[in-house]
């Protein structure tokens, strides 16, 4: 590497360039909120994955004599529910369904929505019109109402509620993908790529995906919290999973009647929903600032 300089040109101080991901990690490592959220989420996810081995008791085993025990009762660290089932075990098992119902729709919508958005943004013209106006129709409904309406039409059940939530999340993701694609498409570097011989496919693969996936991914992480809340809401209304399956929203629903008997225990599923969704939200904020190359 020859250090050539023009006469009269002062070479500027060489900067140490790192790889993209290492600089993302470097920025993340200084962000304690995001790290804390990541740790909490990791604990919740791992305990949900390994629920059968971690949970201290059978989440389905009922008992008439030990209903609605307080938090801290010996043998039942988080008390028992209205049918005498161990709350801790039910919360751990409940994470499985709640996380699946929260994350799967967002992943589905991420794939479908970014495809639609990139096509609409890159092709433009009439195709953009058709895709975006259709999306706008769905966007016009409040998300809760839309999810309930679709779930109600499809009938209760895990798969149906995932389908309805996917439909709810496609419009916002499509819009983000479309707006980023449209702005990227008109930037000089796309023209520069075209001027150096790149075809439409290469431009989408390299330049559009490279610039669009970051913002869309960050946006989708933020949607996970909404999705978990909506999924719990569907179960709460009886449109998600059926009892006796442990699921946070459903647990909140069935414990509702006992709120005057033992409010602390009844609030626990809600606390889990709250913690999980706020952690996803804060993590998405942290990722957004860490992944911004220009920051």
């Amino acid at each position: 590497m020859a250090e050539t300089t023009l006469p009269g040109l002062v070479p500027d101080v060489p900067i140490a360039s790192r790889g993209y991901w290492s600089s993302v990690f470097r920025r993340l490592s200084g962000d304690w909120t995001t790290i804390l959220c990541l740790v909490v989420l990791l604990i919740i996810i791992l305990s949900a994955v390994f629920a059968p081995w971690i949970a201290p008791a059978d989440p389905y085993k009922t008992s008439v004599i030990r209903r609605l025990k307080d938090i801290g009762t010996p043998g039942f660290p988080l008390g028992t529910d209205e049918l005498g089932r161990d709350m801790l075990s039910r919360l751990i098992h409940g994470g499985r369904l709640s996380l699946v119902m929260g994350i799967t729709p967002v992943i589905n919508a991420l794939i479908i929505g970014s495809f639609l958005g990139i096509v609409a943004g890159f092709v433009g013209g009439k195709i953009n019109m058709v895709i975006m106006r259709t999306v706008d129709v769905f966007y016009a409904f409040p998300s809760v109402l839309l999810a309930i309406a679709i779930s109600g039409a499809l009938g209760a059940g895990l798969v149906n509620s995932i389908v309805s939530l996917t439909i709810v999340f496609i419009p916002p993701i499509t819009r983000v993908a479309e707006s980023v694609t449209t702005s990227v498409r008109n930037l000089d570097f796309v023209e520069a790529a075209r001027a150096s011989g790149a075809g439409g496919f290469t431009i989408i693969r390299v330049h559009v995906l490279g610039n669009v996936l970051g913002p869309v991914f960050v946006f989708a992480t933020g949607l996970i919290s909404v999705s978990i809340i909506l999924a719990s809401g569907l179960s709460f209304l009886g449109l998600g999973v059926r009892p006796p399956e442990p699921e946070w929203g459903l647990m909140l629903n069935t414990l509702r009647q006992s709120i005057y008997v033992n409010p602390w225990v009844c609030a626990l599923p809600g606390v889990m929903i709250f913690i999980t969704s706020i952690c996803f939200n804060l993590m998405s904020d942290g990722l957004r600032s860490a992944m911004d190359v220009r920051a």
């Binding site: 250090e3 300089t5 023009l6 060489p14 140490a16 360039s17 790889g19």
Partner: peptide
């Protein structure tokens, strides 16, 4: 004539 070209490649 970009100074320290090898490092600039990764910039």
């Amino acid at each position: 004539q970009i100074p320290s070209a090898a490092r600039r490649l990764k910039a």
